[in-house]
Design a protein around this nucleic acid. Sequence first.
DNA 1: AAAATAAATGCAATCGATTGCATTTGTGTT
DNA 2: AACACAAATGCAATCGATTGCATTTATTTT
Lengths: 343, 343
Amino acid sequence: MERKASVTIHDIARELNISASTVSRALNDNPRIRKSTKEKIKALALELGYQPNTIASNLRTQKTHTIGIVVPLINRHFFSTFISGVEDVAFDAGYNVIISQSKDLLQKEQQIVNSMFSNRVDGLITSLSMQTSAFEHFQLFANKNIPLVFFDRIAPGFEANKIIVDDFACGFKATQHLIDEGYQRIAHLAGPTVLNTYHDRMEGYKSALIKNNMPLEDELIICNRLTRMDGQEAIKKLLDLKNPPDAVFCGNDTSALSMIVYLKSQGIRIPEDFGIVGFSNEPFSEVVTPSISTLKQPAQEMGQKAAELIINEIENKELPRTYQTITMPTELIVRESSSRKFN
Amino acid sequence: MERKASVTIHDIARELNISASTVSRALNDNPRIRKSTKEKIKALALELGYQPNTIASNLRTQKTHTIGIVVPLINRHFFSTFISGVEDVAFDAGYNVIISQSKDLLQKEQQIVNSMFSNRVDGLITSLSMQTSAFEHFQLFANKNIPLVFFDRIAPGFEANKIIVDDFACGFKATQHLIDEGYQRIAHLAGPTVLNTYHDRMEGYKSALIKNNMPLEDELIICNRLTRMDGQEAIKKLLDLKNPPDAVFCGNDTSALSMIVYLKSQGIRIPEDFGIVGFSNEPFSEVVTPSISTLKQPAQEMGQKAAELIINEIENKELPRTYQTITMPTELIVRESSSRKFN
DNA sequence: AAAATAAATGCAATCGATTGCATTTGTGTT
DNA sequence: AACACAAATGCAATCGATTGCATTTATTTT
């Protein structure tokens, strides 16, 4: 019920008969202020319950100590873990994190990016929506030389730092693994291939087939949005082929799971009759039956790295920019769904 | 590489030979400005690529259109889904969301809450850390009449809005269900009972036993932090009892899962020999074998509700405060792990 | 003790948008 | 044409902290 306005440095100054500048400097431990004065000021600040107004400081210093994050969906394990990684590093470096989700909609992404700009975030970390194939809305940041880091789903050709995994190698590894396990006819369920991630995984898949002198067949490649429903439809379609596959490399674990559920319901044994490899190691992948072989992306570490990169850029704005693309290591986790030797 | 400072309303004013006030009003669609003037101003703003400086506006208006969220861990499904719900509603109402994780550490929570205050969030939504049993750090908000909403793990006795589920009823329902399925000796694995959630679930458990004339036994109640490891240790301990239980109601799904893994490894059949009910319906709970019976909390809806509540409070600050505690519905999802009739 | 130097503090502008009140411009009435 | 009134715009202070430069105070040097 206290209606009293906030305590400001002016209140402290008045009380002590000194100037606001001195108070400001004292609270910021500026060496120009005598120790005894500082102590006096800090003591009073504490007593009055002074809380700095970050907004005012931000306005004056043109720095918000805030990093914006835009991801398709906050509550996807990969993204929330990534965010957690960013937040860890950011917090320790004195940065706040503001977050929005594009819901995989380009229009919302554009709105958010604008809003983040108006909020004067010091840097922006983002993974593109499924609909994003043009990048003008990020130009705002580039123009004003505000650090920008893309991760996972990146803007190809855009001058910025990028953090990715080697999706091509992942696709290759997954497919090669299925081949090594003796599967003969391997299909691929991909996401929208405008996105580098899905595109590269598919190329890796193709490359592995070619390397092993196996034919590429269009009917064995399906593209959709990789939801549970999509996975089920895809597996039905594949099983209906005249010459159906005996394994699938899926673009994510969700669709892999829904395929497994369907295959089981049809009495098809996994991995004996059919092999599955997913992508991104969702928490459920380890614990379902059969457990899902998958590729693990170091989400937390990617977030940490992204934060380090962007904070470094923010704090060295005067230096000439050099943009790097950092490729983080992935791991093929072989589990039951693709592993005949387990049985 | 453009080094030109940002375009401000003053730049627009100068160019058009009018005052900044008029520009400001025009851009905010103030009816005091003539339509033709507005159009002129907006056109130039667009041409110059004007982007409002939200910081300046925030300082002047004493409003940031920002809601702070503090949760124990961002990448826990319940929390990230809750956040997603908040973000949905907040975004549509023109609010930003800033997020931090306490990592279940009181000290970090205190730091974050202070920082959110200094950043002048218009409201704060929070679920307490496992270590939090005193609430002075939230007093800052209460004193200045800044809306505060607790959810899930709330501060008992603190005057604020609260969003919870009826954990007592949940504990009761879960236990009653196990009894109905014919389990004779039911144990409970609880989290730290300083937290209302775990405390209430335990009380519900006890109440169900009493109602059914079953004895309460201390050795059947274990308290820990409900990690996977904790779950495994707990089930071992329980099985080692002279008179071991034949079912457990677990404080979360994670510990329930680790119990299941252990029980399976010991050749104990679920649900025939042993029943398990978890809590919070993690994504994996539906898909493991056996699938886990659990209580579903409407995380997304809770987030939406929290956002609605706090935005309403923010935008009606002059109204006298009335604090409500909203109890959201839960659902007992019966799956294989507790359901003898399935087999 | 005066002068020179260093240390401590203060003044006032600034960041960019907003807003109460004053002033100017425009419209309508007789 | 003169007046009343409404509509449109401008002035200048404000939000709270920061900071270059000026000024005051303290210390050292000769």
